[in-house]
Amino acid sequence: MNRLRTLVDPFILALLGTVLLASILPARGMFAPFFSGLADAAIVLLFFLHGAKLSRAAIVAGASNWRLHAAVFVTTFLVFPAIGFGVSSLPFLAPPVASGLLFLTLLPSTVQSSIAFTAIARGNVAAAVCSASFSNLVGVFVTPLLVALLMGGGAAALSWHSVETIMLQLLLPFGAGHALRPLVGGFVGRHKSVLTIVDRGSILLVVYSAFGAAVVEGLWHRLSPASLGLIAVCCVAILAVVLLLTLVAGRILGFTREDAIVLIFCGSKKSLASGVPMAGVLFAPAQVGVAILPLMLFHQIQLFACAFIARRYAADPIEMVAAARPASA
C-alpha cells in the first residue's frame, strides 16, 4: 500500500486533474482575470508565510551561499542554453519548433514553484528564495542577450513590469512576513500544514490559470498530435539531462542535502511567467504562439517531475541524502 501511494502521488494526480480541468473548462471572460488574481494572491501569501517562518540567521546564510547561487546561475544560463542549442540543431525538427525549444532553455528559473518544491522537499528555502529571485531578475537582461547571440533575434529593451512583479509579488511579501515574524512566526510554526496547503495550492492555481489561458488561445489546434508528442519528448529529454547534471553537481561540489535540493529545483526550472511576456517582446506576433508552446509543455512536465522528486525527498530523506552527498574516500 505504501509503495502504491509512492507511485501514485496524490499531488501529481491533482496536477493532472488541474490540467484536465483547464483543458475542458478553462477560465474565460471575467473568470480569467479572477483566477489569475487568485493565483497571484496565493503566491503573495506563500512568500509572506515563508518570510515569517525563516529566522534572520537562515536568511543571512542563504544570501551568503555564493557557491550555490553560482551553480544555479551556471546551470540556468550556460548549461541549459548549451543543451538547447544542441537539441534545436536536430535535423528532424521544424524551424519554429526548434526555435521554441531553444528559447525555453534561455529563460530564467521559476521563483514560486522552485521555492514551493524546495519547501516540500525540506531544502534550504532561504537560499532558494535568493537564488530563484536573483535568476529571475538577472534573466530580464541575460535572456534577451542570449536570444540575440544564439537565435539572431533583436534584444529589444524589455519593460520593467517583470522586475516590478518580482519585487511586489515575491520579495516584498517575503520581507513583510519576516518583519512581522515576532508577531506571526509562532502561529506559522505551530501550523505547518498551512504552509503545505499554500505551497501546493499556489502551484495548482498557477497551472490552471496559465494552461487554461493557452487552451483558450487554441493550444490544441496549433500543431498535430505527432508534433506535440515530439516536442514533449524533447522537453522530457532536456529536463532529464539537467536533473541528472544538477544531482551529480551537488555531489561533486559537496553541497549539504538542503543545498543540493536547491540546486536541483532552482537549476532545473524554466519560468513560464517570465517566458510568455519576454516572447511577446522578442518575437514577431505571428511567431509568439509556436515559440511559447514548448515552454508551456516543459512547464507542465517540470511540475510533474519535480512534484514526484520533492515527495521522494520528503518521504525518504535518508536515501536522498546519500544520493546528494559526495562519496567518502
Rank of each mutant, 00 (worst) to 15 (best):
N124W: 00
S133G: 10
Q112V: 05
G153I: 12
F141G: 12
S113W: 10
L149R: 12
A127C: 11
C130T: 08
I115Q: 01
A119C: 06
T143Q: 07
S133V: 05
G100E: 09
A148I: 13
Q112F: 08
I120G: 04
V147R: 09
Q112H: 06
S99A: 15
S131F: 12
T143L: 07
L104D: 06
S162T: 13
N136S: 15
L149M: 13
L137W: 08
A157Y: 11
N136M: 09
A116N: 03
L137F: 15
L106E: 03
S135P: 05
L107A: 11
A119I: 07
L104Y: 05
T143C: 04
S109H: 04
V138K: 05
T110G: 07
A157I: 14
L171H: 02
A132K: 07
G123F: 11
A116L: 07
L101T: 08
N124G: 11
A116P: 01
T105F: 04
A156E: 15
M167A: 15
L168A: 15
A156M: 14
T118P: 05
G152Q: 09
P173C: 02
S133R: 00
S99H: 10
L150D: 09
V163R: 00
V125N: 03
V111M: 04
T110E: 07
G139W: 04
A156N: 14
L102T: 13
V147A: 15
V147L: 13
T165H: 15
A116Q: 02
A132T: 09
Q169D: 12
S135C: 13
A148P: 07
T118I: 03
L102C: 09
G154I: 14
V129D: 02
L172T: 01
S114M: 10
Q169G: 10
S159G: 11
N136Y: 14
L104R: 07
M167V: 11
R122V: 09
V138A: 12
V125P: 05
A128K: 05
V147Y: 04
P108K: 10
A119T: 12
S99F: 10
H161G: 14
I120R: 15
I166K: 02
L145S: 12
T110Q: 03
H161Y: 13
V147K: 09
S162M: 14
R122C: 08
P108V: 05
A155N: 04
G154L: 14
Q169K: 15
A126K: 03
V163W: 00
E164P: 06
F117M: 15
L158F: 11
L107P: 08
F174P: 03
V138C: 07
I166G: 00
A119H: 10
A126Y: 06
C130K: 04
G100W: 11
I115M: 04
I120Q: 12
T118L: 08
A116F: 03
A155G: 15
V138D: 06
L172F: 14
V111F: 01
L150M: 11
L137V: 13
I166Q: 03
T143A: 02
T118W: 05
A155W: 11
T143E: 02
S113A: 09
T105P: 05
M151A: 15
L145V: 14
L107C: 03
A132M: 05
S113Y: 13
V163P: 07
P144Q: 15
V125H: 00
V111H: 00
M151Q: 02
V142P: 03
A155F: 03
A121V: 02
G152A: 12
V138E: 01
G152C: 10
S131L: 09
A127Y: 04
L150E: 09
